[in-house]
Amino acid sequence: MERKLAFLVVVAISIAVLLPAVRGFSNDGFPLSTYSMFSRDRGRISTVHTVVGLDPDGRPHRLSPDLIGGSDEIVLAAAEVSRAVREGKTRALCAAVAQRVAARAHSYPVVQVVSETYDSVAYFQGEKQPRHTQVHASCAPETSRKTGKTTWERRDKPASAVAIPRGLGAQ
């Protein structure tokens, strides 16, 4: 009896672990996963959705995952920006990032949600400038000295191509 029960448990758990594969790798889950990370060909040309801070001279600076996504996990920040771009919610994301930027006293007058397209292989051979940059939303974090409250001026633009100059600094 004990042996039969053990056999049933082993079979059931094995089927459960294999189920995401049997179901065609359609939906990833947890802890039963399709483990499909790294499985698709992204090609050389890839787009990175991110948020940058522009300094007073208009030069873009990288923002940390914590400023972008509210967590130190880069994949969570990347997923959040991708979702916002996909669902057309970049204004709200821009405002949320601007709030965090202002709260931490970073001196960026403008924050932008952008999609940057690169040749990922050429990137590490010196081609660090994006081939194409699409600005989805711009907003300006402003901190009122009197009230201590942060306000945001949204400067939403239609999607446009803007070349981001070289020399992006990490913040």
Binding site: R42, R44, S46, V48, T50, R62, L63, S64, P65, I68, I74, A77, A78, E116, Y118, S120, V121, Y123, F124, A170, Q171
Partner: peptide, 13 residues
């Protein structure tokens, strides 16, 4: 490998 490292660089990590 190229994309993942490039994205990390793009996020300043």
């Amino acid at each position: 490998v190229a994309f993942d490292n490039m994205r990390k660089d793009a996020f300043g990590t």
